[in-house]
């Protein structure tokens, strides 16, 4: 009997589903042993009525519908896998935790430059209400495995399917992106932090040492450092490496460790901090909801 799989995207972009198709020809041989029973993006079936063996959930729980769907579907599966970084850590949409729900709605429906909403109507009918915060999927339902990546790399997706078929567990790399990166590392003394697009990066040297903000030191390996190889600084999509609880904290340490401290080039700490335009958005791009401080708080309330 074939292994029956259901795939559902919650608050997501459908990129993780497409990552399954990134297996290319290999998916044909995999389909001899498994059957994708339900996957709104991939197969034409409107709802899941029967039980399945494995549920792949991608995306974060952003609204009431996502929450309900996550609980309902996971009850029908023996194994639930958080597929992709949104499902594993909260993901990009987790950055919404920096704003109150009201601020988000007002920005999106009232104040964006392209909005034409003279009556100032906020959607209230036939759309599910937003959850107050984005929380990682494991706070809603029991998750058996996390498969990180934005989207998960084909190698990892293949390993995941093989685990489901043979029982051989997926081993996530214990290293960081820097360990897999081929760019040359030399002296660590940066005096300024650049955003991607400022100047022309040297194609042989470490991007962080050239001053580009690269999250490699605080990110789990497994992607073969594809982004830095193409001179695109790492954004941290694989989440924190082994034994690191907080990706942002690790990134703070990493930046402090490459800053110049010799007497001649010593960079002022305040200036260094000011050079990063969006600290939380850059350091926790994919992991804010599962970090130590998972959302913005207010000092006002304590008084």
């Amino acid at each position: 009997m074939k292994l029956r799989i259901a795939v559902e995207g919650l608050g997501a972009c459908a990129g993780c589903e497409i990552a399954i198709l990134d297996l290319h020809e290999e998916i044909v041989s995999l389909l001899q042993d498994l059957e994708i029973d339900y996957a709104p993006i991939l197969v034409d079936k409107k709802s899941l009525n029967e039980n399945v063996d494995v549920l792949l959930l991608s995306g974060s729980v952003r609204n009431k519908h996502d929450a309900e769907e996550a609980v309902k579907l996971s009850e029908k599966a023996k194994i639930t896998i958080a597929f992709g970084s949104c499902a594993s850590f909260g993901g990009i949409s987790g950055l919404a935790n920096l704003y109150a729900t009201r601020e988000l709605l007002e920005r999106v429906y009232l104040t964006t430059e392209s909005t034409d909403n003279k009556q100032g109507v906020l959607p209230s009918e036939e759309v599910p209400a937003l959850e107050q915060f984005v929380k990682p999927l494991k706070e809603w339902i029991k998750i058996n495995y996390n498969i990180p990546g934005c989207p998960p790399q084909p190698k990892l997706v293949k390993e995941m399917f093989q685990m489901l078929l043979t029982g051989k567990p997926v081993t996530l790399s214990k290293k960081t992106v820097c360990d897999e990166c081929d760019l040359k590392r030399e002296e660590k003394k940066i005096t300024r932090i650049l955003r991607w697009g400022e100047g022309e990066p040297d194609s042989s040297r470490c991007l962080l040492e050239q001053g580009y903000f690269c999250a490699g030191p605080a990110t789990r390996a497994g992607c073969e450092a594809k982004c830095p190889a193409a001179l695109m600084p790492c954004r941290g999509c694989m989440g924190p490496p082994e034994n690191v609880t907080d990706q942002g904290a690790k990134m703070v340490s990493a930046i402090a460790s490459v800053a110049a401290i010799d007497e001649k080039n010593r960079v002022d700490p305040e200036q260094l901090a000011a050079m990063i335009k969006d600290v939380v958005g850059s350091f926790y791009r994919f992991t804010l909801p599962s970090s130590i401080i998972s959302r913005k708080v207010s000092e006002e309330k304590s008084k």
Binding site: L98, G248, A249, V252, S253, I255, A256, S257, A259, I261, R266, V267, P269, E270, L272, A273, A274, I276, D278, V279, V280, F283, I293, R295, K296, V297, S298, E299
Partner: peptide, 20 residues
């Protein structure tokens, strides 16, 4: 010197997270 840079960055991060 590392501490000094680390804490400056951390403080900026904390204030972005709403803490004083």
């Amino acid at each position: 010197f590392r501490t000094e840079r680390r804490i400056a960055l951390l403080k900026k991060m904390l204030s972005d997270l709403g803490l004083d």
